[in-house]
Amino acid sequence: MTEEKNWDLIIKPKPNIFHLGLKEVIEYKDLIWLFVKRDMVAQYKQTVLGPLWLIIQPLLSTLFFTIIFGSFAKFDTKGIPYPIFTLSGLTIWNFFSTSLNKTSSVFVSNAGIFGKVYFPRLTVPVSTLISNGFTFLIQFFILLLLLLYYKIFNNYDWQVDLKLLFLFPIVLILCGLFGLGCGLIISSLTTKYRDLTFLVGFGLQFVMYFSSVVFPIDKFSSKIQLLFNLNPLLHIVGLFRAIFINAPLPEIQWLLYSAVWTILVLIIGAVVFNKVEKSFMDTV
């Protein structure tokens, strides 16, 4: 061979695991949007209530948790109406948990497509994150309506701290990416060890109670509170509440702690996912 060729593609056994192919993901942005559209449209096909489920589900949960923790266990929310406390927690928690949940089953539920055609696999979790973002916005809107209701009819003194509003995107980024990162790690492990799929649902429930989603934690002793504080999600939920329902702002060191966790989990998730996506068809 005299001529040195410039090949477009070289298929090799072990590509660099740090080569995430983000450029390629951006090239496939049309596909990401089509996936988002598919998820949004197909999810509620052939249901009577359709997208109303997005609203009914958190409202029912709010009712349920308000009765249990507000009426029976009598947790004190310091002037915040209990349904508001719960729904605000659930709204941001759902964004995290659905991101994690859907991402974690990405390989198993897309094995059919992944086995036949190549496209950057990262497009699927990214599109899931975006469609979850839309779901979050709808549920967030419901939260605002509930807040307005309490302000007008129950004399609840609600005001948004406008100085804190710039933190809203940060909450969303931290929450979404943390869910994505955890989901990526779990998805990569479930290709081989399906046992994890059973653990995910249970684990999420468990973590939810440790994130002060449905009850406040200031009733507990300071030792137990410290334990709660180690959970990075607690501060993300806390920050969301601080912005919208006048809850106390989490301390800055704990917010940084959560941010470090998010970055760490996301990097590990991306690398593991990248390694697994190349060969998972042989083990799935």
């Binding site: 090949w7 477009d8 090799k12 056994p13 086995g115 036949k116 055609v117 190549y118």
Partner: peptide, 19 residues
């Protein structure tokens, strides 16, 4: 499958020009 990049070879290499 290897050519369409749905799985990787265990060893060896394939070079391709074009889509």
């Amino acid at each position: 499958k290897i050519l369409s990049r749905t799985t990787l070879p265990t060893s060896g290499e394939i070079k391709v020009k074009g889509r």
